[in-house]
């Protein structure tokens, strides 16, 4: 991982930490209990985004072809 990317990641993680911290101080209106717990959005999003990338990457390994379609 090159230098800039690491820096950006550190900044983003810091912002995320701040947001999660702030989440402890607002009043939640949960729809399904767990989504009202502080920091839920952060970990849920980390998990789903990673899952989305991995699923898409895996699908790409299976279904991605070089070159254009023959009839385009």
């Amino acid at each position: 991982m090159d230098h800039t990317r690491r820096l950006v990641l550190i900044v983003l993680l810091a912002v995320l930490a701040l947001l999660v911290a702030a989440d402890f101080f607002v009043e939640h209106h949960a729809s399904f209990w767990i989504d009202g717990t502080p920091g839920f959005a952060a970990w849920f999003s980390l998990a789903s985004a990673a899952l989305a990338v991995l699923v898409a990457y895996g699908w790409g390994l299976l279904m991605r072809r070089r070159g254009e379609r023959a009839d385009d």
């Binding site: 990641l9 009043e27 209106h29 959005a41 970990w43 999003s45 980390l46 990338v53």
Partner: peptide
Amino acid sequence: TPDHVLFQLQLLIAASCIFV
């Protein structure tokens, strides 16, 4: 509302971390 905006911002920033 504050909690909803905060929820969405966490969602987006967390996704950005994964992107990086």
